Amino acid sequence: MNRRFRNIIKSEGLVLVDFYADWCVPCKQLEPIIKEVKENCNLRFRVVKVNVDKNPFIANQYNVKSIPTIILFKAGIPQWTGVGVYNVTELVNIIQNLT
């Protein structure tokens, strides 16, 4: 697994990993939602985007079969996994439950 990626997900605090592809329409729909949650909802978490076409090993490591897939990590351990597009309220509630 990519050492940099591993170090990021093991860092202190919550890390949201967005598994996506450039050609994926739902992935493009999810991107501004994640950005809005990050910028406007006063929640502390880090966002990392992983392109599954460029990083298939990382995607396989976490059993990503469909995109978009979001995995929330705390201290390197997956705490929650979701597939598909979530709205702002859903994503805020999920993150609040993990912080």
Rank of each mutant, 00 (worst) to 15 (best):
Asn40Cys: 06
Thr89Ala: 11
Asn87Lys: 01
Asn55Arg: 00
Leu30Asp: 09
Asn51Cys: 03
Phe45His: 08
Val88Gly: 08
Asn42Gln: 15
Tyr62Pro: 07
Phe5Met: 02
Val25Thr: 15
Arg44Trp: 09
Tyr20His: 14
Asn42Phe: 14
Asn40Pro: 04
Phe19Lys: 03
Ile34Thr: 05
Gln29Ile: 08
Lys74Thr: 08
Gly13Asp: 10
Leu30Trp: 01
Leu14His: 06
Ala75Arg: 11
Val92Arg: 00
Ile77Val: 14
Glu39Ala: 12
Arg4His: 12
Lys65Gly: 00
Tyr86Pro: 00
Ile34Pro: 09
Pro78Phe: 10
Ile33Pro: 13
Ile94Ala: 02
Phe73Tyr: 09
Ile67Thr: 05
Asn87Met: 01
Gly82Asp: 05
Lys10Ser: 15
Gly84Tyr: 01
Val85Pro: 08
Lys35His: 12
Leu14Asp: 04
Gly13Phe: 03
Lys28Ala: 14
Leu14Thr: 09
Asp18Pro: 06
Leu30Gly: 10
Ile95Ser: 07
Asn2Gln: 12
Ile71His: 01
Val48Asn: 06
Phe5Gln: 06
Gln79Pro: 01
Leu16Asp: 00
Ile71Met: 07
Asn60Gln: 14
Ala21Val: 04
Glu90Trp: 05
Asn97Gln: 14
Lys35Ala: 14
Val92Tyr: 07
Gln79Asp: 07
Ile58Glu: 15
Ile34Asn: 07
Ala75Val: 00
Asn97Arg: 14
Gln96Asp: 13
Ile71Ser: 12
Leu43Met: 09
Val47Ile: 15
Val64Asn: 03
Glu31Gln: 13
Lys35Leu: 13
Leu16Arg: 01
Leu98Lys: 07
Ser66Cys: 11
Trp23Ala: 06
Arg46Pro: 03
Cys24Gly: 12
Arg6Phe: 04
Lys49Phe: 05
Ser66Tyr: 13
Ile95Pro: 08
Val37Tyr: 02
Trp23Asp: 09
Phe57Cys: 07
Phe57His: 10
Asn7Lys: 15
Thr89Lys: 15
Trp23Met: 06
Leu16Glu: 05
Phe57Glu: 15
Pro32Arg: 01
Tyr62Gly: 03
Cys24Pro: 13
Glu31Cys: 08
Val48Asp: 05
Asn93Lys: 07
Lys38Arg: 02
Thr81Cys: 11
Ile34Lys: 01
Lys38Pro: 07
Asn51Arg: 05
Gly82Leu: 12
Ile58Phe: 08
Ser11Tyr: 07
Ile77Gly: 00
Ile8Gly: 04
Pro56His: 03
Asn97Pro: 10
Lys54Ser: 14
Glu39Tyr: 06
Trp80Val: 08
Thr99Tyr: 13
Val47Arg: 11
Pro68Asn: 10
Lys74Pro: 04
Val52Tyr: 10
Asn7Gly: 12
Cys41Phe: 14
Glu36Gly: 06
Arg6Pro: 00
Asn2Pro: 00
Lys38Ile: 07
Lys49Cys: 04
Val37Arg: 01
Lys65Glu: 10
Ile8Trp: 03
Asn55Ala: 09
Asn87Arg: 02
Thr69Glu: 02
Phe45Lys: 01
Val37Leu: 04
Lys28Trp: 08
Ile9Cys: 06
Val52Thr: 15
Lys35Gly: 06
Val83Glu: 12
Lys65Gln: 11
Val17Glu: 03
Leu91Phe: 09
Val52Cys: 05
Phe73Asp: 09
